[in-house]
Design a protein around this nucleic acid. Structure first.
Lengths: 253, 253
DNA sequence: GTAAATATTGTTGTATACAAACAAGCGTGC
DNA sequence: GCACGCTTGTTTGTATACAACAATATTTAC
């Protein structure tokens, strides 16, 4: 697949029909992180869902020690909140947080446009085009999870052109949070337009219209934010046990 | 009984800092993080210094469990690196990392200038002026640690005007890393100029010359980066035990 | 029957114990 | 004399035990 995972990011493509490699006794640490991370970011577990250490430890056949570390990392990413003595839950971003995240994305992704335009090569364009195609396919196939993920990957791939790990990680963080925000405030309609949008951006890049690229990005992010409905937060906490059952279909013993 | 390497071993629990037997019930988690964080950022412990869990646990009179969590957080902040099975050390940023950090700062701090100018009030200016005065004083008093910290606080205070937690935390991260970078590649001279610079920026803000503010910030950060000497990395790992005594008294920002 | 107080259960925070891995010191063999 | 392997010691990774706290259920008083 994509041979160019920018930065040392953890590959998020583990979930659907996972290509089963023999990853059993290998570093259990990162795999568990990835599982829960993916489960949250791709809306397999709803915001607000409790994440008890014991249950998770049982699910993944490790001790609470490991789960604790993973949850701590996820908390640092802002995907779970952990109140001092009452455990961890999948984070429920407030409206203020949501607006902050999108404001930060606007600032970052607009400001980096000139640099991106400067360093972008033909191959980059080609790769991005292909990615947009994939996204389009996913949307036609009614696979919103995959579509959202690919949309995020597009933005990540864009900034990855600069090759700055700090920026990559910051945007990765913002995009994870965006996923969560969409889970809480997202409307179920009208997001299919973004695919067209991404194609338009590439056109502008190819035409060397950098200023218009910047304006486009600003508008695009505002559009996405505008599709959110800050009145309704659809929360339906479902049991996570079955979820991780699906995720790692192979039970250890 | 051959004498082994100094700075290791179990005899570190001699710290005067925690001679109080009663205060160890309260300050568990966050204070320890702050202590080590401050120690690193303010150059009390040199990059590359080993941070053995046992020794730290003894120093702070807690178990390795706590230390482990703290080190994990610090690793996430990029202030310590932890190789899989050979422990944690104070991070030694490479030249590439250093350049990435400063590039990220340029992008972020320049891009936010318009927003800052937009939201800045008289009181903000007054507060910032006072802070610059403090910094000037520290520099005259030959207190480079304090001067560096105040310089960082100035930049943080600037972006804090926007009131966006994401941006605040990102810049905080970049600034911590900058401190580390200065510890490794910093020249001992010529940093006193930054104080004047900060005053100049405030003048521009007051004159509503936003564009010039942006250009100023760009130049300023490039100047700071230019004072670095990427050839010499002065590493002198000193014992951290005595260090925490001095620090624990005051908290960090 | 309701509400307050108490008992019980369950979950998290911290410490400690044990096992595995790395590093180094020592000795033997060539 | 040098190199290789064994052994010892130190340090990290993981699991488990125990204690403290929160939440819930139950009992009792009015």
């Amino acid at each position: 697949m994509s041979d160019k995972q920018a930065g040392r990011g953890r590959s998020v493509s583990k979930l659907p029909a996972s290509g089963d490699e023999e990853s059993q006794v290998r570093s259990q640490d990162g795999d568990i992180y990835t599982s829960i991370y993916t489960a949250i970011v791709e809306h397999y577990i709803a915001p607000g869902t409790k994440l008890p250490e014991d249950a998770l430890a049982d699910s993944f056949h490790v001790s609470r020690t490991i789960i604790r570390k993973v949850l701590s990392n996820l908390a640092h990413d802002g995907l779970v909140t952990s109140a001092p003595k009452r455990g961890a839950r999948v984070a429920q971003p407030t409206v203020e947080e949501a607006k902050e995240v999108f404001e930060a994305r606007r600032i970052l992704e607009v400001a980096t446009i000139p640099l991106i335009a400067d360093m972008m090569t033909e191959r980059d364009i080609k790769r991005l085009r292909k990615q947009v195609q994939e996204q389009k396919k996913a949307e036609l196939a009614q696979d919103p999870r995959r579509a959202i993920r690919l949309s995020g990957q597009f933005h990540k791939a864009l900034i990855a052109i600069i090759g700055n790990t700090r920026l990559n990680e910051f945007l990765r963080n913002l995009i994870s949070r965006s996923s969560l925000i969409i889970a809480v405030y997202g409307s179920t309609k009208g997001d299919t337009r973004s695919c067209q949008d991404h194609d338009n951006l590439l056109d502008l890049f190819e035409a060397n219209k950098t200023d218009e690229c910047a304006r486009w990005m600003e508008d695009h992010l505002r559009d996405v934010e505008a599709t959110l409905d800050f009145g309704t937060n659809t929360v339906e906490a479902l049991d996570f046990a079955q979820v991780f059952g699906e995720i790692q279909a192979r039970g250890a013993d």
